[in-house]
Structure formats: structure tokens, C-alpha cells
Design a protein around this nucleic acid. Structure first.
Lengths: 258, 258
DNA sequence: GAGCAATATAACTCAGACAATTCATGGTAA
DNA sequence: TTACCATGAATTGTCTGAGTTATATTGCTC
């Protein structure tokens, strides 16, 4: 009876996503529910027939969504018991999708601090490695990206792309596939989810000089300087992010007990 | 006509895996083919009907396997073009499954070095954080695990479990969910895939003293000592791994051209 | 009370059809 | 010639409904 309505609802639901397939949107929705705590570790999701009924989708689509979540460590499903939300320790917290789901809903302050803590550990070391191993080709890519950042401002899409490319080239220069995977995924997820938050905060320092320092240290094959410059860059990013998140609660000291 | 035979083949194929489902074994097999280079980035996998035909499985099972691989960044599929192997930069190299697939077949020497490079960056810092933030409860867990390692040797299953528990408790004490996810996944995947390699190498140093040092530094809330002790531990692990990998080709210089 | 067999329940797998997406081709107009 | 637009074809995406398999629970036996 409601076939027309449900069909329209499905089309609508898909339209508001970028270009994800149906199973992708379901995985994303369930993933957000899990990482946001709406479903808690140990909880058992509804059965396949039940869940696919409610979502008005076929069991196929729902199952493929569950496979995606299982591949990211968020759930585990077994016959006779069902699909259970895994303990947080098993989640692949650094998976780019999981990361974006975490920071999409309520970027928990503590988690945000933890993430920057990790970045401050890894990225400076990556810069130091890049200073030791960079090739001329990667150096040129960094320089070109730097010019791109200068030409277009960071407020434009092209400018942000140049920024991404700068960091990407730097990571490539580190010559470590695992560091590349880790940092690029983290950086992309964080920047993606923080763009819209910073729209309302047009007050931004000029990022060029800080990037320039990293570039010059890498060019000079000076790992210590590269380490310091990169650490500074990450700390500035953290400042920008936290400032944009709580612009006025800074003075209320009582709220910072925890 | 070959229904009986194919059925037996399927049962056999499933039996040699641990407890993975059909889609899990397919994902694993395809994943190994990809990370080992048999399928190269840019390559397009056979169509779903074709591939599921060859593997003697339904399209459903094959598709769920592809979803798993896509969730780990190994492939990307679009209508009309097919399922294409993603460039290595998009792979989720730190996903525990991807990691185990990488080191299952031919643990490329360079990659192995890269992985230990990352561990030497992160794990000592994690130990330092643990020294600052550990609770008494986590301290007790570490101590109990240490006793377990002493009671059973590392050659036994119980001993290895105690070792895992020691590192797990240490990571929990670091209080950083991202570091926990990163390091536990890496450590588990590496130890899992290197166990059988070290079976033939019974020559193992006593690991207790080195672990003891980490424990005492964390107990004393001494981050610098914890950092040093943990770095030492990782370096020893690297030594053990590389030694067990090439125990006798060291002298035959000609075989190391490549 | 401990161990073992039957059972029920969930995920798992299969088969076949239809729909949606997107690249490629060719035709048309500027 | 070039740019643009409809058309077609190939592939993944989605749906339906059925049967199979694994496993926690229950109940029985010893």
C-alpha cells in the first residue's frame, strides 16, 4: 500500500548522501549509531529480516552493510546469536570511515585530544624521515603544492586541495607505507569533518610560513628542524580546531574538571 | 554433473580455514592476491557472474567478499566499469586483516622494516603515556600478566596469551583509544603471523627481564625510563623477527642482489 | 551434577530476475 | 572540426524467496 511512499523515501535517503550505494548509506548510518553510543558494545542488533524490514531494504543490502561494519571491527555476527556490537577495543579507530563517523556526530573532546596526541607523535617523526629520504621529485611536488596554497587561499577548494597535496607529498617522502596510510587517513578524515565547523570562524592565521618551514627543513635534509616544524604545524591545527569548537567556554574554569 | 565433486571441494576449502564464513575466505583469498601483487593496482577483477562462477560460489557470497575488501580500501567498484584494485596509497595498511594478509604470504623485507619503524615511533611513546596515566588496576593487570609469562613459557599458548595481555594492559593504561587500536592491531597481526616462523627457531632469549623493566618504569611513573625500556623491547622483537627470517643467507652475499 | 543429544534460532548461502548507473558510441548542430 | 547530447550496452546494484549450516539452549540420561 505504501509502495509509492517508501520508494520516494528511499530515493530521498539516497539523494542526501554523496554517491554511496544503498548498502553504503546503511553501513554509514549504523556505523554512526554505533560509534556515537546509541548502540553499545554487547548490544545485539535486530535480526536480518527484522532490520531490513524496518529500513525498507532487502536483506541483501542490509547484509552487505553489516559486512562492511564487520570489516571495520564494529560488529561481529554469528549464527544463532545474531550481530553483536564489538567492544570498543576491537574497533578499527583509525579506519578513515570510522574516523569520519566518529567526528561527524559529536566529536568527543577527549577523543579529539587523543587523536591530536597521536598525530603529534607520528607526524613529526614522519617529517624527520622525509628530510632524510626525500627525492627531488617529491621536493618539487611539495614546492608546487606550497605555491598552490599561496595562490588560492585556504578558504577555497583549490587551496585545501593544495594543502592536502603538500602533506601527501611529504608523507610519500617519508618512504614508509604504514605511516602514509595512517597519517593520510587521519588527516583527510579530520580536515573533512572540520571544514564546515571552521566556516563560521573566518579568523585564520596565514598557514604559509609554517608550511614553508617544514618544506625548507625537508629540503635541507635537516630531520630535527623538520620534526620541530611539523610538531608546530600539528599544534597549530589543534589550536584552530579546539578554538573553533568551544569559542566562548574558555573562561568557565569549572567546566574543565572531568 | 559435478555437483557432488564441487560440493566436496567447497567443504574442503572451508575446512582448511579457521572459522571464517564463505565470504570471509573469499575476501581473504582475494585480499592475499592483491597485497601480494598478483593483482596490481588498476587491474579490474572479473565480473561478478564470471568470478562467482569460477569460485563455484553464489554471486551473493562473492559480492559480500568484495564489500569487505572495499571496506579495507583494497578495491573500488562501480557500475559499467567493474571492480578495480585501488592504488596502494588507499589501502588501509594498518587494518589487522590487511596486515595479516601482507605478512602471510611473503613478508616483504622492506615493509617489515617500515612496520617496525612505526612501532619504534609509537609504542615507546605509548609506554611513556602509560607511565603517566596508569591506574592501580591496570598496574595489577600488567603484574599478573608478567607472572603468567614467567609461569608458562613463551613457547606455550598460555604464555603467549599472557604476553599479549601484558601489552594490552600497558596500552589500556596509555589512555588513548587510537594508540590502543593502532598498536594492538599491529602487534596481534605480527605476532600471529610470525609465530609459526619462529617455531623452528627455539633459540629465544628470556623475555621476562625486558618486560620487567617496562613494568617497573610504568609503576614508578617514569615516562623516560618507560620509553627507553619499550624501545628496547621493540628492537629486540625486530631482531628476533629478522633473525628468524633469514638465519643462514647472511653469508651468501650473492643471493642478496635483487 | 556432569556430560551429551535434540531443538530452535539466527546467520549463511544459493538462484534468478530486474533496476540503476555510467562509459562509449554515434549523430547532430554550431 | 569541435562540442554537445541522446542512445545503447555492460556492469554493478537491489530485490525476492527458498533452503542450508552453525551454535546456544534446552532437556535428557547417566
Amino acid at each position: 500500500m505504501s509502495s509509492k511512499k517508501s520508494s520516494a523515501a528511499r530515493a530521498n535517503a539516497r539523494a542526501r548522501r554523496k554517491s554511496l550505494r544503498l548498502h553504503g548509506t546503511i553501513a554509514r548510518d549504523l556505523g554512526v549509531l554505533i560509534v556515537s553510543g546509541r548502540y553499545k558494545p554487547g548490544d545485539i542488533l535486530n535480526g536480518e529480516i527484522d532490520a531490513s524490514d524496518r529500513l525498507q531494504v532487502s536483506r541483501t543490502a542490509y547484509r552487505e552493510a553489516v559486512r562492511i561494519l564487520a570489516a571495520k571491527g564494529l560488529v561481529e555476527s554469528r549464527p544463532k546469536v545474531g550481530t553483536r556490537v564489538s567492544p570498543q577495543a576491537r574497533w578499527h579507530m583509525l579506519d578513515p570511515d570510522v574516523l569520519s563517523w566518529i567526528f561527524e556526530f559529536e566529536p568527543d573532546d577527549n577523543l579529539l585530544a587523543n587523536l591530536f596526541e597521536l598525530r603529534k607523535i607520528v607526524e613529526p617523526e614522519a617529517a624527520a624521515l622525509a628530510a632524510l629520504r626525500r627525492t627531488n621529485e617529491e621536493l618539487e611536488a611539495m614546492e608546487k603544492a606550497l605555491q598552490g596554497m599561496a595562490a588560492h587561499t585556504l578558504a577555497s577548494e583549490a587551496g585545501r586541495l593544495a594543502d592536502q597535496e603538500f602533506h601527501s607529498a611529504m608523507l610519500r617522502a617519508s618512504g614508509n607505507a604504514f605511516i602514509v596510510s595512517l597519517t593520510s587517513g587521519v588527516g583527510a578524515a579530520v580536515s573533512w569533518t572540520t571544514i564546515f565547523k571552521q566556516r563560521h570562524n573566518p579568523l585564520r592565521r596565514d598557514p604559509i610560513p609554517d608550511h614553508q618551514k617544514v618544506y625548507e627543513a625537508v629540503k635541507a635534509s635537516d630531520p630535527k628542524a623538520a620534526h620541530a616544524a611539523m610538531l608546530n604545524l600539528v599544534e597549530l591545527a589543534q589550536l584552530d580546531t579546539t578554538n573553533s569548537r568551544k569559542p566562548k567556554v574558555a573562561k568557565t574554569a569549572t567546566s574543565a574538571r572531568s
